[in-house]
Simulated scan of single mutants.
Amino acid sequence: MTAEGQRRGRNETEEERADRMWGELIQEVRVAQTGVQILFGFLLTVVFQPKYGQLTSTDQAIYIVTVVLGACATGALIGPVSLHRLVSGRRVKPQAVRLASRMTLVGLALLLATMTSSLLLILRVATHDGYVPYLVAAVVAWYLLGWYGLPLWARRRYSSRSADQDGHPRLPRSPG
């Protein structure tokens, strides 16, 4: 392999890097937004079903927490779009990318909590067995491994020291 083929990183300006990272981030957010919006839409219909009135007070509380978590996850995952629209043309894209990346991570954590509480509610209603918390814990462990564990391991194992805490190449901070 040639020295050029072994070179790491890209020869980009700060703005080019921010543009690329923004495009990547928006593609990632689209996937998460679709999932959270479908789940949230489903959750909103549950309260109007006849069986809702038959839920125990614990299950109704889990449902309310789940809906609130779903609303928060939706807000966090739509937030980067609003951020981009409000700061577009203000020459702050590198800072906006960092902020949007953090909003997306918060949204993913809220989506994890929403999915966890949704699964707990559904399994509590569908089976009244004592193994439900263990099954939910196993699914959460799977999500944590796939969403956080493996990516963090790969980042630590394969990324250069020039990456920031989100695993993206460092963007110089603009003065002021």
Rank of each mutant, 00 (worst) to 15 (best):
T2A: 13
A3D: 09
E4T: 12
G5H: 07
R8H: 09
R8K: 13
R8L: 15
G9P: 07
T13A: 10
T13F: 14
R17T: 09
A18F: 13
D19C: 11
R20S: 04
R20V: 08
R20I: 06
L25T: 06
I26K: 00
I26Q: 05
I26G: 00
I26V: 14
Q27K: 02
Q27N: 02
Q33C: 07
T34K: 06
T34L: 15
T34P: 03
G35C: 09
G35Q: 04
F40P: 01
L43D: 06
L44C: 14
V46Y: 02
P50A: 15
K51L: 13
Y52F: 15
L55H: 08
T58W: 07
T58N: 05
D59G: 10
A61I: 15
Y63D: 01
V65W: 15
T66K: 14
V67K: 10
A71C: 14
A73F: 12
A73T: 12
A76C: 05
A76K: 10
L77Y: 10
L77M: 12
L77C: 03
I78G: 00
G79R: 09
P80D: 06
S82Q: 04
L83P: 01
H84S: 01
H84V: 02
H84C: 01
R85C: 07
R85G: 05
L86Q: 09
S88P: 00
R90Q: 04
R91I: 14
R91K: 13
Q95S: 11
R98T: 06
S101N: 02
M103N: 07
M103E: 07
M103Y: 02
T104C: 08
V106F: 01
V106L: 14
V106G: 02
G107E: 12
G107H: 10
G107W: 08
G107C: 06
A109G: 15
L111T: 07
L112S: 03
A113F: 11
M115F: 15
S117Y: 06
S117T: 14
I122H: 00
I122W: 07
L123Q: 06
L123Y: 00
T127I: 12
H128Q: 12
D129Y: 04
G130K: 08
Y131W: 12
P133I: 08
V136L: 04
A138Q: 02
A141H: 11
Y143V: 03
L144C: 09
L145D: 02
L145Y: 12
G146D: 08
W147E: 03
Y148D: 01
G149F: 14
W153C: 09
W153K: 14
A154Y: 00
R155C: 04
R155V: 05
R156W: 01
R157E: 04
Y158E: 11
S159V: 00
S160N: 10
S160A: 11
D164T: 10
D164P: 06
Q165R: 12
D166I: 05
G167S: 08
G167P: 03
L171A: 08
S174T: 15
S174Y: 09
G176Y: 14
